[in-house]
Structures are given as structure tokens and as C-alpha cells.
């Protein structure tokens, strides 16, 4: 029974740790499918986390916080669009710039506004998203097997967790079952064809980036308003890059993205849980190895040893009309 409980707890923290990855990964999916590389996911999550926690603590409302997180994150996505769509700048360079501006400005503004060493004030109840307890979770809790699964694994997460997982089928539907999705995928593969059909490549790509901004904003809000009760400097800690790795691992597909994020979240949960205690057969695994594993797996995948990851064909290339 102890083993079973340990498994449920590990899976529970897997879900919690996967959510920001999943939201950021789906965010990247929209922009990369539209042909815009976005290594600025990290920065957009960070400004989202900061704006969310700052607004929530000033206005005493979790939903206002979430709205502000989305607004600021979309604004940063628009900077990326302005540089890489309107001015046809290098998309990687623009993404790097956004990450730096986000990292610096959240600390400087946080310190100037709240004077707590770059933190935002600790969020009070009502200013953060509370866990939703499913009906009957307490009653069923002591029933073996089903009880812990229902009460701990399924119930007891915040609304953003459920939203993140609902975004997976929604994203699939948008991309593969709507006109907008078809055009979005087309613009990532062959923008000239989309242009010939009389559809604005730039506007379509801007709309894809707005989707990216919304999702990274939610991811940031999750970090600072659910996982943590406030903003801490550099709290994204490379999650944007892991999300990028997960996106490649998922071969730019929404459902695969969920599994990739769950896998990377599981590795993270496992490394926290093990913390130096030895595994059977393998023996003691260094924490650092577990932390590096998502990156190592992605490199192996990219090398073509586990299937082949083929990015959208027009990715990273600014669109120039023939003249």
C-alpha cells in the first residue's frame, strides 16, 4: 500500500510539474506550426508570471492577475512578431532578446515596485487559484486503489490544471478541424501558397503569435499563482526550453505534446522524489543526470535515433513576397 501511495503521489506531482510545460509547449506549437520559431517561450512565461502575481496582489483578484499575465505575455509575443514578421528579422535573435528583456525587467520592476528583492508580495487566499475539490473526494478517500486515485490524482487541482489538459483536444481541434488551423499549418509549410490564395501571411502569423502569448501567459500565471504563492526571480528556470524540447519530442503534434510534457514532468517528479536514495538494480542516480535527461533525450531524438523530427518547412524563414 505504501508503494501504491508513493506512485500516486509521484503521478500527482507529475501532473503539477507538467502543466507549465504543457501550456508553454502548446504555445510553441501555434507559432512554430505557423512558421515562426519561438525560443522566447521562457521569457514570455516569465513576464506572465510576474504580471500575474503583481496584478493579483495589487488588485486582490486572481482573475485580474490571470488577465494581466495574458495581456503582457501577448504584448511580448507582439514584439517578437514586429521584429520577425513585419521587419523580417532573425527569429532566433528576437527570441533571445525577449528572454533577456524579460529576465532583467521582471527583477528591476519587481524590486522598484515591491522592494522585496525582486519578489512580489506573498499572495493571500482569493488572490491565487485554489484547488478544486471534486464532489465526494473526501468520502471516497479511504477506499483502496480508487480512493487515492480519485481524491489525489484527479481531484484537488486548480482550474488552470484542468484548463491546460483541455487545451490539448482544443488545440488539436483548432489545428486540424478549423479553417484557421488549416491556414495556420499551411503558412508554416508553404507561405507563398497561402499568399497566392489571397490570405495575408503576416496577419495569420500574428494571430498564431497571439495564441502563443495567451498560452505562455497562462503558463506564467500557473507558476506564480498556483505552484507558488507569488513571483520569485527567474522562476521559470529553463522550463521554456524544456517545453521547446518537448515540442520537438512531440514532433509538433498536440496529443504527443501532452505525453512528452508528462514524460518530462515525470522525470522531474522522480528526481525530486528520489533525491539521492538508491534505485533497485541501477543504484544511486545523480540528481543532475535526471535533470539533464529531458535534454539528452531530445538530442537523441533530434539525431534521428528515435524516429525523425521534421519541423514545419517554412519555420524560421521570414516571408518575402516575390517582386
Amino acid at each position: 500500500m505504501d508503494v501504491f501511495n508513493a506512485i500516486v503521489q509521484t503521478l500527482d506531482s507529475t501532473i503539477r510539474l507538467s502543466v507549465p510545460l504543457l501550456l508553454a509547449c502548446l504555445a510553441g506549437l501555434y507559432s512554430e506550426r505557423a512558421g515562426i520559431f519561438d525560443i522566447g517561450l521562457e521569457g514570455k512565461m516569465l513576464v506572465g508570471a510576474f504580471a500575474g502575481a503583481a496584478a493579483a496582489s495589487v488588485f486582490h483578484s486572481a482573475f485580474l492577475g490571470l488577465g494581466m499575465a495574458i495581456l503582457i505575455s501577448v504584448a511580448f509575443a507582439m514584439i517578437h512578431g514586429f521584429a520577425s514578421i513585419t521587419h523580417r528579422g532573425n527569429q532566433i535573435v528576437s527570441g533571445v532578446a525577449i528572454n533577456f528583456i524579460a529576465a532583467g525587467s521582471t527583477i528591476i520592476l519587481g524590486q522598484a515596485w515591491f522592494q522585496q528583492g525582486g519578489r512580489t508580495p506573498a499572495l493571500q487566499p482569493g488572490e491565487r487559484f485554489e484547488a478544486i475539490i471534486w464532489p465526494g473526494a473526501d468520502a471516497i478517500h479511504d477506499v483502496p486503489i480508487i480512493g487515492p486515485i480519485y481524491a489525489e490524482l484527479l481531484s484537488g487541482h486548480s482550474i488552470l490544471v484542468y484548463l491546460a489538459f483541455l487545451m490539448v483536444p482544443f488545440t488539436w481541434w483548432v489545428l486540424f478541424r478549423t479553417r484557421f488551423g488549416l491556414r495556420l499549418r499551411a503558412v508554416g509549410e508553404n507561405p507563398a501558397a497561402v499568399d497566392t490564395a489571397g490570405i495575408s501571411v503576416a496577419w495569420l502569423r500574428y494571430r498564431a503569435l497571439i495564441c502563443t502569448g495567451i498560452l505562455t501567459g497562462i503558463a506564467g500565471a500557473y507558476l506564480s499563482m498556483v505552484q507558488n504563492g507569488g513571483f520569485v526571480k527567474d522562476m521559470t528556470a529553463g522550463k521554456g526550453y524544456i517545453a521547446l524540447a518537448a515540442l520537438i519530442f512531440a514532433k509538433w503534434k498536440p496529443v504527443n505534446a501532452m505525453f512528452a510534457c508528462l514524460l518530462f514532468g515525470f522525470l522531474d517528479a522522480l528526481s525530486i522524489r528520489l533525491q539521492g536514495s538508491p534505485l533497485p538494480i541501477i543504484g544511486k542516480v545523480p540528481v543532475q543526470f535526471m535533470q539533464a535527461l529531458p535534454y539528452i533525450l531530445t538530442v537523441i531524438l533530434l539525431a534521428g535515433f528515435i524516429g525523425k523530427a521534421i519541423p514545419p518547412r517554412a519555420g524560421g524563414v521570414p516571408y518575402v513576397k516575390e517582386r
Binding site: 528579422g89 533571445v96 533577456f100 528591476i108
Partner: peptide
């Protein structure tokens, strides 16, 4: 004291943005 060394990180980001991604603006 309000301007910690993280200000440099912002300037760095802005230089990358304007001298790199927006070099043709």
C-alpha cells in the same frame, strides 16, 4: 540601489533586439 545589475540584462536584451532582430528597421 533601485537599479541593480539586472539593468544590464535589459540593456543586453534591447541591444540584441535593436542591433540584431530589428537591424533593418
Amino acid at each position: 540601489p533601485a537599479i541593480s545589475r539586472d539593468m544590464i540584462v535589459i540593456i543586453q536584451g534591447l541591444v540584441i533586439l535593436f542591433a540584431g532582430a530589428l537591424e533593418h528597421m
